[in-house]
Design a protein around this nucleic acid. Structure first.
Lengths: 199, 199
DNA sequence: TTTAATTGACCGACGGTCAGTCATATAAAG
DNA sequence: CTTTATATGACTGACCGTCGGTCAATTAAA
């Protein structure tokens, strides 16, 4: 009887059209009117697809995380060294194209999730965590199975994931390129966890 | 001429009087009027002492960080084992009294600093970082000098600090008690970095 | 009288709502 | 097959309440 639009698709399209705007000014300095204007819809329409302003960031970050996860999965299956895999796992966010922009969205998201108590937000964060943990766990377990690294390294997987979160926060103030830090860290770290069978 | 108030002191007193309020509702859900009311001053007076709402969180967190730093300094000089020192360095925020409240303020602060580009904020974050890095560096260097742990452990200091940041973010969603995680992590980690001179 | 300090009425901006409009699909009538 | 009536989801922007921030007026100490 009436037009039926693909809600999910439109939601995504509105979110993505405001991406650049968000990057440029940060969520606090954007108005809903501006987003609506940018997406070519009325202000009220925004609320047909999003519950509030933060929900828009939520949608954008979902796309980003999915992308990120996919890239990480191809990483595990490639046949580079374990050390290299760990390095890439940690620095993935910093080497993708447009990383500066992606990062700033990711920071907006972390800031929201740090202070929000909305159920959906927590659930989403838990899912992300689980996915990333699965990946790093696999990298470590594979290497242990192959006898490349020590058993204790298994207990380091969780730290590595937490470390990536810390890096995002820390890199914001600490001007230096995180890649250099990650590189130095992994070099020393890998020396600690690798088995010395050449001794 | 007229009354001269100690600006610095009053600033602190206003900030601290709104602490409970902030913990309860989060910065986004507090109004300046409410803070003023709570501090027993007019709304306009708030702006004599703070540049904006975030500046109030800034003041509260300053007190907290200073306290935190002091406690860590007494930690270094106490004569507990290195392993224990690392554990406490990582879990300090979770074992202090009222830790849940302090944490939630700290989260508000991180959220602000993640999205703010104000000069003062960055400077402050850098200072905090430097102080904490000094402490953990000292713990590691002392232990290396005493021959307790390997040379490579020096490169782990920065990671340990970054890990604490990550924990604050991660603990928000991940329900589990961070202390358990820290404990398990440090046990395994220390086994990796300690020198095996008993072999 | 001067001046630091304080105040709350006031302002403008913004997030979010809702009563009403529009466009199209369906189907009954001719 | 065409026309017309009607139902409904999509869409809109004027409007409302709230709140951060300002400033002219007031107070009171020196």
């Amino acid at each position: 009887m009436a037009i039926i639009v693909n809600k999910e698709e439109k939601r995504r399209s509105i979110a993505l059209s405001s991406r650049e705007l968000l990057l440029e000014h940060g969520i606090k300095n954007i108005t809903i009117s501006r987003i609506a204007e940018c997406a070519g819809v009325g202000k009220g329409t925004i609320y047909e697809y999003f519950t509030n302003k933060e929900d828009i960031v939520f949608e954008i970050i979902s796309v980003f995380i999915a992308e990120h996860e996919k890239q990480l999965y191809t990483l595990i299956d490639s046949d580079i060294s374990t050390k290299e895999k760990i390095k890439i796992f940690l620095s993935m966010i910093y080497i993708i194209p447009d990383s500066e922009k992606q990062l700033s969205i990711y920071r907006e998201f972390l800031a929201i999730s740090l202070t929000s108590n909305v159920e959906e937000m927590t659930t989403f964060s838990k899912e992300c965590r689980l996915k990333l943990m699965t990946i790093i766990d696999r990298i470590m377990n594979d290497a242990i199975a192959k006898g490349e690294i020590k058993e204790e390294a298994k207990a380091m997987a969780e730290m590595l994931h937490t470390y990536t979160l810390g890096l995002v926060v820390d890199a914001k103030t600490h001007g230096l390129d995180p890649q250099v830090r990650i590189d130095e860290f992994v070099e020393a770290f890998y020396r600690l966890i690798q088995k010395k069978d050449t001794k």
